[in-house]
């Protein structure tokens, strides 16, 4: 049953060192505020899972929170590389990062399998690809009915899934819309679920078939308006494309990255203060 708590409390109580953590959101509704709070609280040795690691995972990896990453596309969408992810993989800084690399179709399937409480997912894929040679968690199985060879990989069962959504009601039911990615599946696959929301309302007033995560599957709901920035929340605010472009320069060198993280994340109390400080530093910048 979901409690409505502060993000600080939710991360403190529900995310533990060494956990398998999935923060999902396919370009849309990325839980940036929650990512910052994990960094502020200095969580360690996380096994991060995400189809498209982007800025929040670049930050978590660069700040030494993660030792392992299961993913399928790691880049700054529309801009280029994730420099902190690359530094960890290419030079082991600030610590080595074990990669477990799949394709999108496989990752999406593995969340579905996790949500369905199955041990693995089945896929017609990877034929001719080198990925199975480097990832022992991609294997092949013969269909007992047709003899077709199919790819399998372990279901994703996160200890904690973290997502951002548009609305929750006061009882902790969550409503999201727009590009949904794998958020519902990632939530249903997890032992614990944290959702940050733009708004808490009396009634969701959602039409039938809307994407709702009922309070029975949500552990904590945290009110965090703007919590997906620089990603977007459909119906609330648009993607901050200039920030994605600016991140390329911030994250390129270790020193500029660390200075930025100190000033904007470690030395701020919460995401609201982060946004205020960011506004100030952006105004000062030429």
């Amino acid at each position: 049953m979901s409690d409505i708590v502060t993000l600080r409390e939710a991360i403190a109580h529900l995310v533990r060192d060494g956990d398998c953590v999935a923060m999902e959101g396919f370009t849309h509704l990325i839980p940036s505020a929650a990512g910052h709070e994990v960094i502020r609280q200095g969580k360690k040795d996380l096994y991060l899972v995400r189809m498209t690691p982007d800025l929040i995972y670049d930050q978590l990896i660069g700040m030494g929170c993660a030792s392992r990453l299961r993913f399928s596309w790691g880049g700054n969408p529309g801009v280029g590389s994730l420099h902190r992810l690359r530094d960890a993989v290419e030079r082991g800084w600030p610590q080595p990062l074990a990669l477990e690399e799949h394709g999108h179709a496989d990752m999406a399937n593995a969340y579905v399998a996790g949500a369905a409480n199955l041990p693995f997912s089945v896929l017609r894929g990877y034929q001719g690809s080198d990925l199975p040679r480097y990832n022992r968690n991609i294997r092949f199985l013969r269909c007992p009915f047709t003899d077709e060879e199919l790819a399998v990989s372990p279901a994703i069962r996160p200890d904690v899934t973290v997502i951002h959504a548009q609305k929750a009601d006061r009882r902790g039911n969550v409503l999201l819309w727009g590009i949904l990615g794998v958020q519902k599946e990632a939530a249903m696959a997890a032992k614990r679920v944290i959702v940050t929301v733009e708004q808490i309302v009396e009634r969701l007033d959602a039409p039938p078939n809307a994407c709702i995560l009922p309070r029975a599957v949500v552990s904590a709901v945290c009110l965090q308006p703007g919590g997906a920035f620089p990603s977007y929340a459909h119906g609330y605010y648009t993607r901050d494309n200039p920030f994605y472009i600016a991140w390329d320069d911030i994250a390129r060198e270790r020193e500029t990255f660390l200075a930025w993280m100190r000033r904007h994340v470690l030395e701020t109390q919460d995401f609201d203060e982060f946004r205020r400080v960011l506004g100030e530093t952006q105004r000062k910048a030429p």
Partner: peptide, 25 residues
């Protein structure tokens, strides 16, 4: 043109928006 693969412009102009697992499966 979208800057990212999940820009709101794509959702706003689509016939429908379905979960990613349905796209692949």
């Amino acid at each position: 043109l979208p800057l990212s693969i999940g820009d709101g412009e794509l959702a706003d102009t689509a016939d429908m928006v379905i979960p990613t697992p349905e796209i692949f499966r």
